[in-house]
Nucleic acid binder design. Structure first.
Length: 277
DNA sequence: CGAGCAACCTGCATGC
DNA sequence: TGCATGCAGGTTGCTC
């Protein structure tokens, strides 16, 4: 489910309910996610929420004691409940707030992850990135320091297919299978094209398309394919704006050619063989 | 070192 | 109806 837009939609919604609130422990019903859910979460010592931050597809709850880092995996959702209701089968974690509400994590497939990073004594900017998994992430798509020229220079002589390159987290973070396919369509680039064969013009189009599609998806509340919901349990509606993802065999919205489906590194790619070159 | 691929887990759509 | 198969938004960690 969640690529960058869905994580950002969740962050924005949750920030309103959580910032300035005090966490007072957690109920962990099933600790078995990608890694065991950290036991420190259940500690009832008051823990002030200072900020909610997103880095790539990670959500970071910065508190007075630690950073609680959450990855939603394929099927994770975080919802704010002002009144606790009976949990259902895949509601694995509740974070309790001093005022009585809670944040509930649901994740049927359990590919998600929760990490606890202690606040260090001598504090640096973005200190939670001391975690190995966050440290090695590539640039944020909206970072002004990321330019088409960076991409152009980094790819000379490389043969990797552009769709796999876009998704692998080194050139840029946040583009998963939906938004990689969509931005390649909007940029008019064949997903099989090798990155070394692309010039500055194509990189400029691609970066612009990626930023636009991520922006619009965030504004639309994300894409709900099966189970994504925001902090209030509301579905996104950007799935209605997909041009290629999930539309194999249907006509291209620009030229009516039948959209083609291929496999690239275990993932399905849909594209228009006429519009994308 | 990079690329390719299986694995992690549940639910749902499809086809026999 | 029931069962087997394949596929799904992501990442890790193992091979070659």
């Amino acid at each position: 489910m969640p690529e960058l837009p869905e994580v950002e939609v969740t962050r924005r919604g949750l920030a309103r309910c959580l910032e300035g609130q005090v966490l007072v422990g957690a109920t962990i019903r099933n600790a078995q996610l990608r890694y065991p859910v950290p036991e420190q979460l259940a500690d009832t010592a008051p823990n002030l929420v200072l900020a909610l931050v997103r880095r790539a597809k990670y959500l970071i709850i910065e508190t007075s004691r630690a950073a609680i880092i959450i990855h939603l995996g394929m099927s994770g959702t975080l919802r704010y409940l002002s009144v606790a209701t009976a949990p259902s089968r895949h509601d694995h974690v509740d974070l309790h707030l001093s005022q009585g509400g809670c944040v509930r994590y649901r994740d049927p497939r359990r590919f998600g992850a929760w990490l606890w990073v202690e606040r260090p004594g001598a504090e640096a900017v973005n200190w939670w990135e001391s975690d190995e998994r966050l440290r090695q992430l590539g640039p944020e798509p909206f970072d002004p320091a990321l330019t088409a020229e960076c991409w152009y220079r980094a790819t000379r002589g490389k043969k990797q297919e552009v769709k796999r390159w876009l998704m692998d987290g080194r050139a840029v973070v946040g583009a998963g299978n939906i938004y990689a396919a969509e931005s390649l369509f909007l940029a008019g680039i064949d997903p099989r094209r090798s990155v070394g064969s692309m010039g500055r013009v194509r990189y400029a189009r691609l970066l612009e398309a990626l930023r636009r599609v991520l922006d619009q998806a965030i504004e639309a509340g994300g894409s709900t394919l099966r189970d994504f919901v925001d902090d209030r349990g509301e579905m996104g509606y950007f799935q209605h704006s997909h041009h290629v993802y999930g539309r194999a065999g249907k006509p291209c919205l620009l030229c009516a050619t039948e959209l083609r489906q291929i496999r690239q590194g275990q993932r399905t790619t849909v594209f228009c063989p006429v519009c994308q070159r």
